[in-house]
Design a protein around this nucleic acid. Structure first.
Lengths: 190, 190
DNA sequence: CTAAAAACTTACTAAGTAGTAAGTTTTAGG
DNA sequence: CCTAAAACTTACTACTTAGTAAGTTTTTAG
């Protein structure tokens, strides 16, 4: 057989992540993944024993991506505003492909997920919120931002604006997301 | 047979709505509903031919509820702030029962829904946004609110804060929702 | 009381679901 | 080239899903 792929496991994660962002965890099957890769569903089970393991893998990779991005932005010389915009950009691209963010997707399915995954999601959300909070604090200290709420509350406001913003814009159109995006930037600038 | 229920159709809608808010559209089955009502799944099909019809019925009822609430608040003598708080209250109760709002739930499953339902969701979201926008405009005119964004943008900000707020609080706890709720009220008051 | 409509149950289908065991092919290392 | 591990396929299971057709019970209206 001709070599199929450099790394099938990584391809499965990539497609699984796309399916979650596009349709949600409970709306895709192993068959969807195996068809997309022109394989049998048993091959997917070879790499990920069960759907729980697959979701765990997807969340782990997403978390790693975030940690990596955080480290790259750390000593980058970027302003706090630039860092915040890099974060926002992750949501902007979602609206271009009829997707919602992974966190919003699994949050909607939260009650249907196994306990081990719930714990992982909590860690992931905490990490993201802390990253935003930290950036907001930094921007305030440097005089870039002038919001009046606590950094934690402001981070919550921004994250909910973005997460639900991409969900809403799938229904009412991208222009609503743009209104939200611009307004929340004005909000933090003060 | 002893009379089962005053109105089975209404009971089906009630349980279906609860299941959507708790688990999502793609995570419940006709069997879940029939078991909850101690009936056979065919009985559910008697009242709602397919899952599409059921979801349509649920959304119709939700929309009717909103229209009714809107009319009651219309000539009620309530201040704009009181009206806004009545709207917010709808989200607060959700956090008490591990639920998310219907709009957020179907927004996450949007790409998996039939076209007729997508149209209905668009109508529903537009109606809700317009109600909030109108209340905000009224409050500004009466000097209760002092937000700087347009009423439409401010409505988008509030709705995304609330919708994603209940989603997030299912993961990180109710206290985060409370922080969001209080902050957005401060925001509109100016 | 009776007929007919409404509200079901019984019993089924066809398709899709996650998951598994056993066997085959491919790849990599010595 | 040879072997062993890795990466699959084949072929299946047990279960759940939405949905249906036909028959039964219950309710309602005359």
């Amino acid at each position: 057989m001709a070599p199929r792929n450099i790394d099938t496991k990584q391809e499965i994660l990539r497609i699984g992540m796309d399916l979650i962002k596009r349709y949600g965890y409970n709306a895709f099957s192993y068959a969807d993944i195996s068809k997309a890769l022109d394989m049998k569903n048993a091959a997917v089970h070879y790499h990920f024993r069960g759907k729980e393991d697959l979701l765990t893998g997807i969340l782990d990779q997403y978390l790693n991506d975030y940690v990596l991005m955080g480290k790259q932005l750390q000593g980058s010389g970027f302003t706090a505003l630039q860092k915040l915009e890099k974060f926002i950009e992750r949501y902007s691209v979602l609206t271009e492909m009829e997707c919602i963010c992974i966190i919003g997707s699994v949050a909607s399915d939260f009650n249907t997920l196994p306990e081990s995954v719930k714990v992982k999601i909590k860690e992931l959300v905490s990490l993201v919120l802390q990253m935003v909070e930290k950036t907001l604090q930094e921007g305030k200290k440097r005089g870039e931002f002038h919001f009046t709420e606590s950094a934690k509350t402001q981070a919550l406001l921004i994250m909910t604006n973005l997460a639900a913003g991409v969900q809403l814009s799938r229904i009412t159109g991208k222009s609503d997301y743009e209104l939200i995006r611009k307004a929340l930037v004005r909000q933090v600038k003060g």
